[in-house]
Amino acid sequence: MKPTILMAPRMPARLLARLEERYEVLGPMTHSAPDALPAGAAAARVLLTIGSWKTDAALIEALPNLGLIACYGTGNEGIERPAARARGILISNAADANATSVAEFAVGLMLASARQIGAAERFLRAGRWQGNGVGRMAHVPGLAGRKLGIFGLGAIGQRIAARAAAFDMTIGYHNRSPRPELPYQYYDSLLGLAEWADILMVSVRASSETRHAIDAGVLRALGPQGHLVNISRGIAVNETALIEALENGTIAGAALDVYEQEPLVPDRLKALENAVLTPHIAANAESAQIAQQELLLANLEAFFAGRPLLSPVAI
């Protein structure tokens, strides 16, 4: 008899097909609450989810045989960890399986914002380009010699730093603790990093400590020539403060792949010419998706075999 697993949000078709070869797969759920559980969910040993999906104590308690919460991506902020810990439930995630893809995209967003690539395309499509002598867009600073401040120097942050160094940028960072083995300048406060940086890159985990870490004060410190890039989680940035900073010229521009209330994006933000906006696709490289799926399958195999998880999340 196949072990039973519960799929909260729908998983990719390729992954689902492989799961169904080995497991009795229930779901997806229509919403995150016990009343949305499908018939037979009480038998589920594993809950497949994503970081932003709410997995609270009520949902956990409604699954009496649950032993593992397996997150498809790297995030796990939606899980009520004390409730999982009290039951001895394990948590796994994608670790650094998508880190290269996200770092590549982060550099693309940095270029798009700092070099005004989107604005330049709109300029051309609107018929405003009159040749190389007159009617050109205003000059902007290049990346060479500029200072990139990375908030969160984990697997993704380190890959961003390595790529930015190839642009001859100077790298600084703020982390929970210094990384002396890395050749980058450490700042003991986010505010200090923002004051130093020309471009502030957000690559932290979503948590209560990082919620709205990028606030009006940090944006003022970044300054009128500064750019903000966020490829982590939308809750790390106070969206209202960011919109006001972009509208008022407090900062020069922003590039965002994540938002506070996904998939909702404020109309004020969408109306801004100095904002580059993409729909949470930084990890959408095929190689990253395959790696995430393989790691999730390996974690399930290890769990049901009684072996240690390959990418456990500390709770």
Rank of each mutant, 00 (worst) to 15 (best):
P3S: 01
P3D: 02
T4W: 07
M7I: 13
M7T: 14
A13S: 14
R18S: 13
E21Y: 12
M29K: 02
H31T: 15
H31R: 15
S32E: 14
L37F: 12
A39W: 09
G40T: 12
G40I: 13
L48S: 04
T49D: 03
I50T: 15
S52L: 10
D56G: 11
A62M: 08
A62P: 14
P64L: 02
N65Q: 15
L66P: 00
G67F: 09
C71T: 09
G75H: 01
E77N: 10
E77K: 04
G88R: 06
G88Q: 06
A95R: 15
N98L: 08
N98S: 13
N98W: 05
S101L: 06
G108S: 04
S113T: 11
A114P: 07
I117A: 05
A120R: 08
A120S: 15
E121H: 14
R128P: 01
G135F: 10
P141I: 02
A144V: 01
R146G: 06
K147H: 15
L148Q: 07
L148A: 15
G157I: 01
G157K: 00
A162Q: 14
D168L: 08
D168W: 10
D168G: 05
I171E: 09
G172V: 04
N175I: 00
S177D: 03
P180M: 10
E181P: 01
D188A: 13
S189D: 01
L191H: 09
L191G: 06
S207G: 04
H212I: 08
A213Q: 11
I214H: 09
I214R: 05
V218I: 13
V218M: 10
L222G: 07
G223A: 04
G223Q: 01
Q225K: 04
Q225W: 02
Q225D: 11
G226A: 03
V229K: 03
A236L: 03
V237A: 09
T240D: 14
L242A: 01
I243K: 01
L246G: 11
N248D: 15
G249W: 12
G253V: 07
A255G: 15
Y259N: 07
K270M: 14
K270D: 05
A275P: 12
A275F: 09
L277P: 05
L277M: 00
P279C: 08
A283V: 02
A291H: 02
Q293P: 03
E301M: 04
A302H: 04
A305M: 01
P312N: 02
V313N: 07
